[in-house]
């Protein structure tokens, strides 16, 4: 597809961590402008208070997008096949986001082996986003089509 190679990975490999933040109102407004999410919860403190928050919160798509971009900076955007994220807690102004992830196994996706990864974005000791990704990759142990038993 491209001239870049798929990443060679083994179960247990970690993606180099990324720290982002502290998240500012400017970061949230920049994402709102980029993506077109003008829900007042993300820029209007009075509205956020009415919705039960002490401050505006980031849109989930912002932290999901940061997690996705961090992942594809590592594996190549052309090799991402699936990404699923769940939002566990709101990201408030001032949050320092820490992105971590590791290869947990291999799976089959439409007849092609894909590496599965578990990803998380955390603030302090609490996870705010958890994700699972599947990327086209090759096994670092030299086999091009790893056995589905790898990593079990």
């Amino acid at each position: 597809m491209t001239s870049r190679r798929a990443r060679a990975v083994s179960v247990g490999d970690s993606i180099p961590e990324r720290e982002l933040g502290p998240i500012s109102q400017t970061d949230i407004v920049r994402f709102a402008g980029a993506g077109g999410d003008f829900n007042p919860l993300h820029h209007d403190a009075a509205f956020a208070e009415k919705a039960g928050f002490d401050t505006v919160i980031a849109m989930g798509q912002m932290q999901a997008g940061m997690l996705a971009s961090w992942l594809t900076d590592w594996c190549g955007v052309e090799y991402l096949r699936e990404l699923e994220v769940r939002f566990l807690a709101p990201v408030r102004l001032g949050a320092l986001l820490r992105l971590t992830g590791a290869v947990t196994g291999w799976a089959d996706l439409d007849g092609t082996p894909v590496a599965e990864l578990e990803l998380r974005a955390s603030v302090g000791s609490a996870d705010v986003v958890r994700g699972v990704a599947r990327i086209a990759a090759v096994s670092a142990n030299g086999r091009s089509a790893p056995s589905p038993d790898d990593g079990r």
């Binding site: 491209t2 077109g36 999410d37 190549g76 955007v77 990404l83």
Partner: peptide
């Protein structure tokens, strides 16, 4: 890298928010 043009980031289609009436 072999792309035919500048590549979009993985969640780029979120920009459809600009074209939607939420």
């Amino acid at each position: 890298a072999g792309f035919t043009a500048l590549a979009a980031t993985p969640t780029h289609v979120v920009v459809s928010g600009h074209h939607r009436d939420q």
